[in-house]
Design a binder for these strands. Structure first.
Lengths: 203, 203
DNA sequence: GCTTTCACATACAGCGCCGTATCCGGATAC
DNA sequence: GTATCCGGATACGGCGCTGTATGTGAAAGC
C-alpha cells in the first residue's frame, strides 16, 4: 500500500468523499445521471452504501457538488487565465482554437456530458437551475469583459452590447460543440476557427 | 361521447396508439424521459400496461417514434415551407425572428425539452444517435441550400462553404435557445434578430 | 488506558416498476 | 349465427434500488 495505513479521521473521510466523487463522475458519464444508482457509484469506489449516506444526503447533492468542484472550476480557471494574463486578448480565431481543443480533449468531453445532464435537470429542479444560471452568468460576464477590452484596445465601438456579443460567442461554442458531439464527421472541430474568425473577427 | 361507439379494430388501435403518444409527450416533458414510467404514461392516457405492450415494445421505442412523428416533422415542415416558397430567401435577421418565435411558443418549448433528452441519449444509445444524426444532417442540408441560394441570388461567393455556414447558423440558434432556456432574463429572445442580423447579414 | 465518538459496514423492510402469461369481450370472417 | 382473432385488461413473479436502523472497530478525548 502506498497510502499510509494511519490516517486522521478527517483525512480518511476526505479521501472517501473524493473517491466517491471520482467514481460518481465516471458512472454518470457512462450511464447518465438517472441510470446511475447509488449502489453502482459506491461499488465503483470500493465502498458500501453506508459510506455514501454518511457523506452525502442524495445523489443529486453529490451531482451538484461534482459539477461545482470539477467541471465549473475547470472552465472558470481556463477563462480567468485568459482574462488575467497581461498579453493582449487573442483574436476570435485564436480563441476558437482553444475551444476546439477543449472539445477534443477527453476531459473536456466528459465534462461536456455532465454539463448536458445538468442542462436537462435545470428545466425541472430549482437547485440545478440555480447552479446553471450562476455558472452562465459569471461566464457571460467574463467573456463580455474580454470583448469590451478588445474593442477598447482597438479604440472602436462594439456593434452590439458586449453582453450580447458574449451571449453570441458562447452560443456559437455551445452550438458547434453539440453538433460535433452528435455527428463528429459532419461537423468537425476544424470549423471552429473558420467560423469564429469569419464571423467575429470582422466585427 | 362525441366519438362513435362503433369503431373498426384498426381505428380503435390507432386511437389508442395516438393517445399513448400524446400522453407520453406530456409525461416526458413534465418528468423527463427517465423519471417517466410506463405506468405513468398509460395512466395518463387512461389505459393499462397491457395496451402499452401491445402497441410498443419499450419506452425507448415510443420515444423515438414520438420524436420522429411530432418534433422532427414539425421542424422540417417549417423549414421546407421556407425553402419551397418562391418568395426570396429572407434576411438572417428576419429568419431569426421566426426562430425566436418558435422558442417563445409553448409547443416549441416542449419540443425543445424532448430534443434535449434525445441529445443526451444520443451519447450512449446507437439508435438515438442515428436518429439525431439523421435529423441534423437533413437540417444542415436544408439550411445550406438556402444559404447557397441567397449567395447565388446576390451573385456573390460565400466566405465559407455553405455547409459550414449552415452549421454556424444552426449552432447560433441552438446556443441562444439553450441560454434562453436556462436563464430567460439574462438572454432574452430579442437578442435573436440583433445577433443574427449583425453577424450573418454582413457576410 | 479507558471511554466516547463517529465513519463506514451490515441488515432489514419495502416500494415501484418491469415484462410476461393469461384472460376476456367485441370486432372480423365465413 | 358460429368460430376465430386480437387489442387491451388482469394477474403474477421478481428484480433493483432506496433509506433507515443497527452494529463495529479504529481514532479522539482526557
Amino acid at each position: 500500500m502506498a497510502a499510509p495505513t494511519r490516517m486522521s479521521r478527517a483525512e480518511s473521510q476526505a479521501r472517501t468523499r473524493q473517491a466517491l466523487l471520482d467514481a460518481a463522475g465516471q458512472v454518470f458519464v457512462e450511464r447518465g445521471l438517472h441510470r446511475s444508482s447509488v449502489e453502482a457509484i459506491v461499488e465503483r469506489a470500493g465502498f458500501t452504501r453506508g459510506a455514501f449516506y454518511s457523506n452525502f444526503s442524495s445523489k443529486e447533492e453529490l451531482f451538484a457538488e461534482l459539477l461545482q468542484a470539477s467541471v465549473y472550476s475547470a472552465y472558470r480557471q481556463m477563462a480567468e487565465r485568459q482574462l488575467d494574463g497581461d498579453e493582449p486578448a487573442p483574436s476570435a480565431r485564436q480563441s476558437a482554437e482553444t475551444l476546439a481543443k477543449i472539445q477534443a480533449n477527453p476531459d473536456g468531453r466528459w465534462m461536456f456530458r455532465l454539463w448536458l445532464e445538468l442542462l436537462l435537470e435545470a428545466g425541472r429542479d430549482e437547485k440545478m437551475r440555480a447552479l446553471a444560471v450562476e455558472f452562465w452568468r459569471s461566464n457571460r460576464e467574463l467573456v463580455a469583459e474580454i470583448v469590451a477590452r478588445r474593442y477598447a484596445a482597438a479604440d472602436r465601438k462594439p456593434p452590439l452590447k458586449p453582453k450580447t456579443l458574449a451571449s453570441a460567442l458562447i452560443a456559437m461554442d455551445i452550438g458547434l460543440a453539440i453538433q460535433h458531439y452528435v455527428d463528429p464527421d459532419a461537423v468537425p472541430l476544424d470549423v471552429y476557427p473558420d467560423v469564429f474568425g469569419e464571423l467575429f473577427d470582422t466585427l
